[in-house]
Simulated assay, not measured.
Amino acid sequence: MPDLPELPPPAPTADETELLLAWLDHLRGSILRKVADLDEEQARWRPHGALIPLLGIVHHLTQVEWRWIDGAMRGEPVSRSEAEFAPGPELTVAGAVRRYRERALATAAAVRSMPMTQPCADGSGRDLRWVLLHLVEETARHAGHADAARELLDGVTG
């Protein structure tokens, strides 16, 4: 299997909001490349029952952004379920990818509508800057996880 070509890093910018959104989008692209050519069975594969399947990573990251942006930042009711790591057969690869892309647009719109110092509505003392950095960190962690899962699945790296 050939390696995937590297994605170029985001362009530098002095705008902190746009820089963090660009890095988050760059990392999302890394995740999406790992599932782009997989069938449903491959996307649900786990080596010896370990790791999260690639489909679970996409679904989990969609939920993470929703919980932090709509929940923590906006104060809307949200929930968490361990099922997000191993979604049922009703969630297809195409559906998960579509929802992740839609969530990315919603996250970017919400982030651009608030100052970085906007406090979380959950009373945690965190602000939008903290939340956005956490989303970058969470997505980067799972991008590495996706790299490992894909390489173990079929040898594709990059």
Rank of each mutant, 00 (worst) to 15 (best):
M1A: 11
D3C: 09
P5N: 10
P5C: 12
E6K: 12
L7P: 04
L7T: 00
P8S: 12
P10V: 00
A14H: 13
T17F: 05
E18W: 04
L19A: 14
L19M: 14
H26R: 00
L27D: 07
R28G: 05
G29C: 07
S30N: 13
S30G: 15
S30H: 10
S30R: 07
I31Y: 01
L32C: 11
R33P: 00
K34P: 01
A36P: 01
D39S: 03
E40W: 00
E40C: 11
E41A: 15
A43N: 02
W45V: 02
R46I: 05
R46N: 08
P47C: 12
P47R: 13
H48Y: 09
L51I: 09
L51F: 14
L51Y: 14
I52W: 06
P53T: 02
L55E: 00
G56F: 00
I57G: 00
H59C: 11
H59L: 08
H60I: 02
Q63H: 12
V64I: 13
W66K: 07
R67K: 10
R67H: 01
R67T: 02
W68K: 03
D70W: 08
D70G: 09
M73S: 01
R74A: 13
R74H: 14
G75F: 00
G75K: 01
E76M: 09
P77M: 01
V78I: 08
S79H: 04
S81P: 05
S81D: 14
S81Q: 08
S81R: 02
E82D: 13
A83C: 06
A83L: 14
E84L: 13
E84I: 12
F85E: 10
F85A: 11
A86K: 05
A86E: 12
A86L: 15
A86H: 06
P87I: 05
P89D: 15
P89W: 03
E90K: 02
E90D: 15
T92N: 07
T92M: 09
T92K: 03
G95R: 06
G95I: 12
G95E: 10
G95P: 08
R99H: 11
R103Q: 15
A106V: 04
A108W: 05
A109I: 11
A110Y: 07
V111I: 11
V111C: 04
R112M: 11
S113N: 03
M114K: 06
M114L: 15
P115Q: 09
M116S: 06
M116P: 07
T117C: 09
T117F: 06
T117I: 04
P119H: 08
C120F: 13
D122C: 07
D122R: 05
G123N: 03
S124Y: 01
S124N: 02
G125H: 01
R126Q: 13
W130I: 08
V131E: 10
L133R: 09
H134Q: 11
H134K: 04
L135M: 15
L135K: 00
V136L: 15
E138W: 07
T139E: 14
H142A: 06
G144F: 02
A146N: 00
D147F: 02
A148I: 14
A149I: 14
A149V: 15
A149H: 04
L152H: 05
L153A: 05
V156D: 07
